[in-house]
Design a protein around this nucleic acid. Structure first.
Lengths: 331, 331
DNA sequence: TTGTACGCGTTATCAC
DNA sequence: GTGATAACGCGTACAA
């Protein structure tokens, strides 16, 4: 059975060698005679010795931990990015340290902890940054990268939000809708304003005037129930575009609750292409972002930055896919 | 700007005191003159000094980290438990270390890491344990608790699965269904076998014979598509009960895909009461488990164990709620 | 190929 | 109140 608090010294003593030899065997570095290695490894296995990470990190003045800073874990959007990033990191020589930074208090806590742990790098994915100063201090003390998140001075992984939103706007207008509700997110990040800009331009280029877009936003809880109910009161609105699929799934619930039919009574479309869209009937028109890939890409790029020692400034833009479902009526 | 590798010694030197004094101030322990404290704190803030966790842990021979060992993060079931556990831990003096242990490789990696980090405790929530020996070693080296998970020798948080499944079985049979498909999970944990047992007994007590339950299981990917298609070929089956809502949501997709109507063509019911059920039309009949609470309870109980030094053996059973939606036809 | 000695940054135990 | 000093467990020159 594994006893507690075994140290490298115990192993050394019990196998009749010095600490350094044990260290060499554990970290698999330097020359060690095969016979010695076997002897020591036997002792290690028998006693169930496990090296102490804190001591190792302290000794090396370095940690191989990478922080993954996630905004809201109950949102599938962030889950996908997290899964992608984690998969790459847990498959590397680094170690993922997941931070569920969904509230102001948690952001503070986790940022502090990441600093205290001297992490090798951080991946940010959050639609809101509460304390820019703290983030800035963290970013300055380590390597960092973001996924669709606004943080100054670090590379960002994203898609071309303007162009994606433009496409879906053209699609909806092209289907003959003339009065279109738009439910934006309460959060104010660049990718969201780009989507709105792209959507607006699409309507304009389709010959619709400015009044054709009825703009609303979700409340601070990041839900969309009230916004949706407001829009649905105006029966001249024939289509609703949501800034992301977290919102569109909530709007879907409201529409069902009110006994309305999609797309006959109202058209619905979103942005993200989350897995939960599979539960929506009829199939939702949306823009699919490669979220898992974006997470993976962020992790790969970050590891590269750590290993090369470079800082990296250039953003990476990945491809999106327009998904045409049956949720937007052709008039 | 925060410079790297500042130590307690630098702060001491620059504020004209000794390391010990700085340490006292940081850890807020022992007597320090107010004037000294202010002086030192100013230096700390100006330089942006952050204490080094590894050194602290090493010095104390103790870590205040609690591991949260989660089976499958893309399953909302685990998300709820994770969120509950994290909320309690991040609000305590301990720190959450989240392990996405969904694959055999990852379980090995994370268990090893938890041991290396000398964590204060671990919360297990996973429907599969790949290496019982490794888990056992970890459990023996620290405090541990589980949520609806089979690990020997530690307390488990659960509901009365037998009774819950019995209730839903009586409900379905009471609605006149005589041939009922049951889709079990591929995973083999105690709570699942209890559900099956309870459901079986309910049908028996409703006067149905053994042949009335058509048993199938999901495949190793934990999906349910094939199992559902198989069941749906037999048009004499009028209702399908799923062992959990991860399965029922997949079955819902299959039913829609095949153009069948719930509950007219087939009834569907599940187990868990996940948030994503809100997207299912009509409202799904299911058993709601207090998953978030179970996570919270696990964390609270674990912290208690850590602080009292006790091991704890007694399981905790929480209440469930039978949710009667419109997805089971009354015949 | 192996052993010795020092340092990593912090806390705790003593003295003062 | 405050300051030396010895741990904590490990890696790594430098010797041997």
């Amino acid at each position: 059975m594994s006893e507690k608090n075994l140290t490298i010294r115990d192993i050394a003593r019990l196998s009749g060698v010095s600490k350094s030899t044990v260290s060499r065997i554990i970290s698999n570095t330097g020359y060690v005679k095969e016979a010695t290695r076997e002897k020591v490894e036997n002792v290690i296995n028998e006693l169930g010795y496990t090296p102490n990470v804190s001591a190792k990190e302290l000794s090396l003045s370095r940690s191989d931990t990478i922080g993954i800073f996630i905004g809201d874990i109950s949102n599938q959007y962030f889950q996908e990015i997290l899964r992608g990033a984690e998969s790459v990191i847990s498959d590397s020589s680094f170690f993922p340290f997941i931070c569920l930074a969904g509230t102001e208090k948690r952001q503070k806590l986790y940022i502090e902890e990441l600093m205290k742990r001297r992490v090798a790098g951080v991946i940010f994915s959050s639609s809101f940054i509460y304390d820019e100063e703290a983030i800035s201090a963290l970013v300055n003390s380590t390597k960092a990268i973001s996924v669709q998140t606004d943080i100054k001075g670090i590379p960002n992984i994203d898609i071309d939000n303007y162009s994606a939103a433009y496409s879906i706007g053209r699609l909806i207008a092209g289907n003959g809708h003339k009065k279109i509700g738009y439910i934006d997110s309460y959060n104010t990040i660049h990718s969201l304003s780009e989507r709105l800009r792209g959507f607006r331009d699409a309507l304009k280029d389709s010959g619709l005037n400015e009044d054709s877009l009825i703009y609303t936003v979700t409340d601070s809880n990041y839900l969309a129930f009230d916004a949706a109910r407001d829009l649905l009161k105006d029966r001249s609105i024939t289509a609703i575009q949501c800034a992301n699929d977290h919102i569109s799934s909530n709007v879907y619930s409201v529409i069902n609750e009110m006994g309305l039919k999609i797309p006959d009574d109202v058209s619905l479309s979103g942005f993200d292409g989350l897995p939960l869209n599979d539960l929506i009937q009829p199939k939702l028109t949306s823009v699919k972002q490669p979220l898992y890939d974006m997470g993976q890409m962020a992790a790969k790029k970050l590891i590269e930055l750590i290993e090369t020692g470079e800082t990296g400034k250039e953003d990476l833009i990945l491809d999106y896919t327009l998904i045409e479902g049956q949720s937007v009526l052709k008039k």
